[in-house]
Design a protein around this nucleic acid. Structure first.
Length: 462
RNA sequence: GGUACUCUGGCAGAACGGUUAUGCGUGGGCCUGCAAAGCCUAUACAAGGGGGUUCGACUCCCUCGGGUACCUCCA
């Protein structure tokens, strides 16, 4: 698989000959997560599911930043502790995350649970004279890392002129950033330099090294993390180890609304909770995968609606496959194989989910065409179904399960309707159909048979 | 101001130096008792403007213009 690497600004080949190690920068837990966060996670979720489908072992680490000024501020305004705030939003995060059908990471390390590792990390930086103790905290000396700026392609002198926050006089250089901040306000920890808490970037350096080693395969996050977060992580980690940090830097584009970045500070966010309630996980996932991961996507109800239409086709396909029993058939094996390799090739080539979806929907169209022409035989279904389900699984899409009892009830109702139809008692027949519709069960009348499909309940559709 | 990315048909959105992207939408049709769903078919002669390289450019180069992101809050 080839992936576009932000650092080298070129495609790099992902080494899949052994376990693939991925570190994804998670969220700062002080508020509800929004669709922008969802996109990043979904992209990485599909990436790991694809690799796992190929039999590749994945170690996937995603952190929570649970100590931060924003958390502390929120705790103060709500008159509670930072821990209460971070715990609450971590719980909410998992609620959203499970709702989106995301596979759990190997581990979710938290900054507050790695203070010892962070302190050790800082100690070594001080020992190497890369970090220094100052009045307000311990700072990383950017001048000690000559390659500073290599990820974000920034020049140090240009950065200084553009610095937009007030200069902290205790720093040797305005660009130096805190690895430890002195503070008396909870939460604080003792350190060799004084009471305080870690800076934002240091946790990711300490935790990624701890769990994945000095040099791992993919480090990811939103594009907005390139600078300063990931730039600083590189500076810290490579200064610490003397070795290359992540091999591939993979950055996911922003979700915009009306062309403007979705962010808490602008106040134009759509929370995952809210969108999940209205559209469900499948449509959100299709939407988030509909463009190349590196580019921005614009959130709109129209696009979600378009993906709903597509999702209905996928559902139809699934139920056609289940009920397939036509006598006429077509040889589908070569088509299925062709689309399967198109799907894989698209993902191998810088993880082009849009093209992969293209193949997925072509498979659906092909299946539905055969069904419409009464040519979808059992043997065909046996060939198509595993591939269809493989794609569903990789994309993280799921058709709701149904109980056998309910299936039995539906079958009985369809039989009754059939009797009424044969006796040309259409009013009675239509009543049954309406009743099923209320249960979100839709009937599809083929020439010789009636099949049913259970539609996902999409609130926004009504 | 600096840096990066980006500009494709009504909309979304790819690939590729020369072939129909694909999907949504829209028109027509098939199926049906009627619907629904689905399918079939038609539909766009698209590439921000200008210039250049080339036998040939949406694809490479230059230039002008628009947009977005980042320039220590950010996924």
């Amino acid at each position: 698989m080839r992936l576009q690497d932000t650092l080298s600004n070129a495609e790099q080949v992902l080494d899949t000959s052994k376990k693939v190690k991925i570190y994804l920068c998670g969220v700062t837990v002080y508020d509800e997560s929004h669709i922008g966060h969802a996109r990043t996670i979904i992209v990485f979720d599909v990436l790991r599911k694809y690799l796992e489908d190929k039999g590749i072992e994945i170690e996937f680490i995603q952190n929570f930043t649970d100590v931060d000024d924003k958390i502390i501020n929120k705790a103060q305004t709500e008159n509670t502790s930072a821990e209460v705030i971070s715990t609450k939003y971590i719980e909410n995060y998992f609620r959203d995350f499970n709702g989106l059908n995301i596979k759990h990471a190997t581990n979710y390390p938290k900054a507050t649970e790695h203070i010892v590792d962070i302190i050790k990390f800082i100690e070594k930086l001080i020992e190497k004279e890369i970090a220094y103790v100052s009045k307000n905290g311990v700072y990383f000396a950017v001048s000690k890392f000559p390659e500073y700026g290599k990820l974000s392609k920034k020049k140090i002198d240009e950065l200084e002129s553009g610095a937009r926050i007030e200069v902290d006089e205790s720093k040797n250089n305005p660009l130096d950033f805190a690895v430890w901040k002195f503070s008396d306000v909870e939460p604080v920890w003792e350190s060799p330099w004084g009471k305080g808490r870690p800076g934002w970037h240091i946790e990711c350096s300490a935790m990624s090294t701890k769990y994945l080693g000095e040099n791992f395969d993919i480090h990811g996050g939103g594009r907005d993390l390139i600078f300063p977060h990931h730039e600083n992580e590189i500076a810290q980690s490579e200064s610490f180890t003397g070795n290359q940090f992540a091999k591939i830097w993979m950055h996911v584009g922003m979700v915009t609304i009306d062309g403007e970045k979705m962010s808490k500070s602008i106040g134009n966010i759509k929370s995952i909770k809210h969108v999940l309630e209205n559209w469900g996980p499948n449509i959100i996932r299709l939407f988030c995968l509909s463009g190349h991961y590196s580019k921005p996507i614009d959130y709109s109800e129209e696009l979600l609606k378009e993906n709903l239409t597509k999702w209905r086709q996928a559902e139809t396909c699934y139920y056609e496959l289940i009920h397939a029993n036509s006598k006429d058939t077509e040889n589908v094996a070569s088509t299925v194989q062709k689309l399967a390799s198109e799907f894989d090739n698209a993902l191998e080539n810088d993880f082009n989910t849009h093209l992969a979806l293209s193949a997925f929907f072509q498979l659906i169209k092909e299946t539905n065409r055969l069904a419409a022409e009464e040519k979808l035989g059992n043997e065909d279904a046996k060939i198509i179904k595993p591939e269809f389900q493989r794609m569903l699984k990789i994309l993280g899409l799921s058709i709701p399960e149904m109980t056998d009892d309910l299936k039995q009830d539906i079958d009985t109702m369809i039989e009754n309707r059939e009797k009424f139809r044969q006796e040309k008692q259409f009013q009675e027949a239509d009543q049954i159909r309406d009743k099923l519709n209320e249960m979100n069960v839709e009937l599809i009348d083929h020439k010789g048979k009636t099949i049913w499909m259970k539609k996902e309940n999409i609130k926004a559709e009504k």
